[in-house]
Design a protein around this nucleic acid. Structure first.
Lengths: 343, 343
DNA sequence: TCAAATAATTAACGCGAGTAAAGTATTTTG
DNA sequence: CAAAATACTTTACTCGCGTTAATTATTTGA
C-alpha cells in the first residue's frame, strides 16, 4: 500500500484532515498553530511525502526567506571559510542562503547583485571588492534590498559593515616584529583589489612611526587575484636585487607571503628566526595553507566566525525590524597573532 | 519622464505593443518570434525595466532551466575550479547553474540532492564522495532527475560518468620516477574518502609490476578532508622512523604531498633531484598551490575544463534527447605530467 | 459553567506566468 | 496576385499557494 504522491497542499489537506489555510500557516511558522494540530500535521508529514512548492510559495509571499551571500572570490580559502560560516548562520536562523562568487571579476559582482534582485531575497550579505566596486551600484542596491557588508567596506552602502580591525592587527604584528628582530619592511600590491590593503598600509606606517622606526614600503606590480604568483615573481625579484633594507618582510596578506616564501626558498635564502636564517617573513589572514609553508608562516588570524555571525545577525535584525537606513553601524573584530616559524 | 516600473508581463505587453503570449514565447526562446517583433520587444526592453518573475515562470514551466551542481568540498581548489568550469559550461548553454558544496560531509550530500529535488532542476551534475556516498540514494535520485556524475563514479548511477584516467596518469608518473631515480613508494590514506584513491593505488601496483619493481604502499591513519594535516603528521612520522625503503614517495594527491613536503622541510630533509637532496616527492592533481611548495611539486595535471565541458555536454544531451537510461557512458581523460623540482 | 479568547474551517480572490484554442494579420510561395 | 503558410492576438484556463473575511469549533479562565 504505497501512499500516493501528494501533488499540492490541497491534497495534503484532505489526507491530513487539516484545512489548507492552517497548513499554510504551519509551513510558514510551525509554532503558529495549536500543538494538537501541529502533531496531526507532522504525523501526516511522516506518512505522506509532501513539501510545498517553493516556486508557488515564493511567488506569493511578501518576501522570500532567501538570503543572498556574495563574496569576491570563492576559490580564496578566506572567502570560502567566511562564506560558509555566513551560510551556516543564515540556516540556523531559518533562511535559505544562496552563496555566489564574483570570481575575482568586477562585472560579475554587478551581475550577481542583479541575479539576486530577481530572487527577491529577504536580504543580502555582501563582501564587495571594495575600492574597485561600483559604489553607486551597491548603494542603490542597498536602497532596494536590506544589505549588510562584510570584510570590505563601501562608504555609505548598506545598513552595517563588519570586518577586521586592521589597525589593531597590524600594530600587533609590527610591534612583535620590532621587538623580536629587525623592523619590518611592508610588501604589498601596487594596485590592491581590496580596501583592507590600504588600511593595512596606513596601519603599518602609523605603527612604525609610533615605534620610532623608519617605514619602508615595497609595491609589487600586477593585477588580478593570482597573489601567490605576484608575490613569487615581484617579491623574488626584489630579494634578488637586494632592495630590502632590513631582513624582515611583512606581507599585506598570506597569499603574497606564500609566493615570497617560495621565491626565497628557490634563491636559497633561509627564512625564520633560527641560526643561519637570513630573512623573516610574516603575513596576515592565517590562510589555511600558512600552516604548511616552508617554514610555517607567522601571521594574523582573523576571527572568521565572529565576523560571519555578527554580519548575519545584523542583517536579520534589519530584516525583522524593518527599520532601514536608521543609522549605519560599523563593527571591527580584533585579529590574533599566530606565531609560527617564519618570523 | 521616468518610465514607470513594470509589474508584470501584462503591463509590459501593453507598453510594448506585443501580446502577452508572444512575449512569453520570446522569453522562453528569443529566436522563436519573428525578427521584426523581436526587435520591437528588445526596443521596449531597453526602454522599460522588466524581467519575468522567476518564481511564476518556474512554477508553470514543465521543466525549469536550473541545473544543480554538487561537489564534495568546495574549499578544495580542485573542486572549486572544476565546479566553476561546469558552471560556465551550463551558462553557455543557457541554463542557470546552482553550485552546492557538501562541505566534506556525507549527510550534506544527501541534503543537497534533496534541496535540488525541490528546485525541480532540468538536470544535476554530481561529483559524489564515491565509495562513502549512499549508492542507493544516488541511484534513486538518478531515476527521478537527469543525472551525470563526474570526478568520482558511483556504479550504475546517472546517465554518464566523466573523470580522469587514473591508470594512465599514475602509469605516466611511476614510469617517469623509475626512469629518473629510485622507484617510488606510494603514500595514501588508509580510508580514502574518494574512489579515485583506490584506482590510483591499483594503478601504482600495476605499473610497478609492469616495470619489474617492488611495490611499497604506506597508508596514513586519519579521516576527513584535512589532507595536508594528515600528510604532515603521518608522512612526517614515517619519514622520521625511516620506514620508506626508497628515497621517492608518490602521494595519492597533491594535498597529502603538501603536508609531506612541510614535514620534510621541518626535519631538514632536502627534497628534489639536485645534489644534496635525500628525497623525491610527487603528487597528483596539480593543485594550484603545488607551484609554490618548497620545492615546487612534480605532479599530474587533470584536464579540468575537458572534464567539465564533457560532463555538461553529456547532461545537456540527456536533457534534450529525453532519452534516459539508454546506455551508461564512461569517459576518461588522460592526465599530463607536470615536471617541477620535487622529483 | 458560561462567556471571552483563541484557533480552525470554508469560501473566495490574487499572484504572474505557461499554455491551448480560435481567430486575425502578415509573410511567403507559386 | 491569390492561396498557403506562418506568426500574432484574444480569450480563457491552469498552476500551487498566500491571504483575507466570515463562520464555526475549541480552549481558557474566572
Amino acid at each position: 500500500m504505497e501512499p500516493r504522491k501528494i501533488r499540492n497542499m490541497e491534497e495534503f489537506a484532505s489526507v491530513s484532515g487539516i484545512s489548507r489555510p492552517t497548513l499554510s500557516k504551519y509551513f510558514n511558522d510551525p509554532g503558529s498553530v495549536r500543538v494538537s494540530t501541529r502533531r496531526k500535521i507532522e504525523a501526516a508529514l511522516g506518512k505522506y511525502d509532501y513539501r510545498p512548492n517553493i516556486y508557488a510559495t515564493n511567488q506569493n509571499r511578501r518576501t522570500t526567506r532567501n538570503i543572498g551571500i556574495v563574496v569576491p572570490y570563492l576559490a580564496d580559502p578566506f572567502f570560502n571559510e567566511i562564506g560558509r560560516a555566513v551560510e551556516l548562520a543564515c540556516i540556523a536562523a531559518g533562511y535559505s542562503p544562496i552563496l555566489l562568487s564574483s570570481h575575482g571579476n568586477l562585472a560579475q559582482e554587478h551581475d550577481n547583485l542583479e541575479s539576486l534582485r530577481a530572487l527577491k531575497p529577504a536580504g543580502v550579505l555582501l563582501a564587495p571588492f571594495g575600492r574597485a566596486s561600483d559604489k553607486a551600484t551597491i548603494q542603490r542596491f542597498g536602497q532596494d534590498v536590506p544589505l549588510v557588508l562584510f570584510d570590505a567596506d563601501v562608504e555609505g552602502a548598506g545598513e552595517a559593515f563588519i570586518g577586521t580591525n586592521n589597525a589593531q592587527s597590524i600594530a600587533l604584528i609590527v610591534s612583535y616584529l620590532c621587538r623580536s628582530g629587525e623592523p619590518p619592511c611592508f610588501f604589498e600590491m601596487r594596485t590592491p583589489s581590496n580596501p583592507n590593503a590600504n588600511k593595512r598600509r596606513e596601519a603599518y606606517l602609523e605603527s612604525m612611526k609610533h615605534l620610532g622606526q623608519e617605514a619602508h614600503i615595497f609595491q609589487a606590480v600586477g593585477t588580478g587575484w593570482d597573489f601567490e604568483e605576484i608575490g613569487y615573481r615581484e617579491g623574488g625579484r626584489m630579494m634578488a636585487e637586494g632592495v630590502f633594507p632590513t631582513n624582515t618582510i611583512l606581507c599585506s596578506n598570506d597569499r603574497l607571503a606564500i609566493g615570497v616564501l617560495a621565491a626565497a626558498y628557490e634563491q636559497g635564502l633561509k627564512v625564520g628566526c633560527d641560526e643561519g636564517c637570513v630573512l623573516r617573513i610574516a603575513g596576515h589572514d592565517d590562510h589555511p595553507f600558512s600552516r604548511y609553508t616552508c617554514p610555517s608562516l607567522t601571521t594574523i588570524s582573523q576571527d572568521y566566525s565572529a565576523i560571519a555571525d555578527r554580519a548575519a545577525m545584523a542583517l536579520l535584525e534589519v530584516i525583522d525590524s524593518d527599520q532601514r537606513g536608521q543609522r549605519r553601524t560599523i563593527t571591527l573584530f580584533d585579529g590574533k597573532l599566530v606565531l609560527r616559524n617564519s618570523a
